[in-house]
């Protein structure tokens, strides 16, 4: 009988999204959970995954226990292959060298648009969030994985503000706006792995996290979610994945349990 491992929702999201990052690819990772998740992938199944950070780094090996709170500081550059100006590292995405963009999401809508700027009215917002940083560039220019906590107020029908573009208003609207490459690939939450209907550009349920049900996912989603026919259940985090994760983030700065 398999030993039952325990993990919290943030650890699940981190591990589940790390599994999407394939060996031999290039990932542009944002600060916070994406940074941790990309490093986890590199330390487990994707040894030759190349990580880029917006500070200007190509291919670092960030030290366990020293995960920086920003992707623009020196600890992001440990044992890197190259350090270059910010604008130039971001432009690598425009050239097409980046396989995945990897972002967190404060608020994401059914078209995969991400809001990290305003909650409420733009002119008098209830909350002014930190803003795009490189998020808009990543979402405009690369195929994006979004890692987030699954809550009704976070997965909404329409975001208050499109900071980082997904499929805009669905259909062909992203391409018509001039964003002819990239687009949201997956949204990984603690309840589900969500993909997108290619024609409609609308989010759909592809996989359930261990223990989650379609009902529970729908209950926690702010719009009517389509369910794919070949729905699968993702496997739980392994002991090995959790072990490596705890070495990388011993103080649980990025993987504090939330909403449980």
């Amino acid at each position: 009988m398999a030993v039952k491992v325990s993990y919290n929702t943030a650890e699940l999201v981190c591990i589940s999204s790390a599994r999407l990052l394939e060996d031999g690819k290039v990932v542009f990772a944002g600060a916070g959970l994406p940074l941790l998740s990309a490093i986890l992938a590199q330390k487990t199944h994707a040894k030759t995954l190349t990580i880029l950070f917006e500070g200007g780094v190509i291919g670092p090996f960030v030290e366990p226990g020293k995960l920086p709170p920003s992707t623009n500081e020196q600890r992001c550059a440990t044992r890197a292959n190259m350090v270059l100006p910010t604008t130039d590292v971001l432009l690598l995405q425009q050239r097409g060298y980046v396989d995945y963009g990897f972002l967190g999401g404060a608020q994401v809508d059914q078209y995969g648009n991400i809001n990290s700027s305003y909650i409420g009215d733009w002119d008098r917002p209830t909350v002014r969030l930190p803003g795009t940083g490189g998020g808009n560039d990543i979402a405009s220019l690369s195929k994006v994985i979004v890692a987030m906590h699954h809550e009704k107020r976070r997965l909404v029908k329409k975001v208050d503000f499109i900071t980082s573009p997904g499929y805009l208003s669905g259909g062909n609207s992203r391409k018509e706006a001039g964003l002819i490459a990239g687009g949201v690939l997956k949204v990984v939450t603690h309840l589900a792995i969500l993909g997108f209907d290619e024609e409609k550009g609308v989010m759909c349920l592809e996989g359930l996290q261990p223990g989650a049900t379609v009902e529970k996912v729908k209950e926690n989603t702010g719009f009517d979610l389509m369910v794919k026919d070949n729905l699968y259940e993702a496997s739980a985090p392994t002991e090995e994945e959790l072990r490596v994760l705890h070495i990388l983030d011993p103080e649980r700065r990025y993987t504090t349990a939330r909403g449980e």
Binding site: T87, L90, Q94, T132, N136, S140, L168, A177
Partner: peptide
């Protein structure tokens, strides 16, 4: 966006009035 701000300084440094980018299109930014 981070890149567009970088391109704005770069345009300034190059002595041209603007630079084109494939970023920010379609967004509320």
């Amino acid at each position: 966006s981070h890149m567009s701000l970088g391109l704005r300084y770069k345009a300034g440094a190059m002595g041209v009035p603007f630079l084109p980018a494939r970023s920010m299109l379609g967004s509320d930014v």
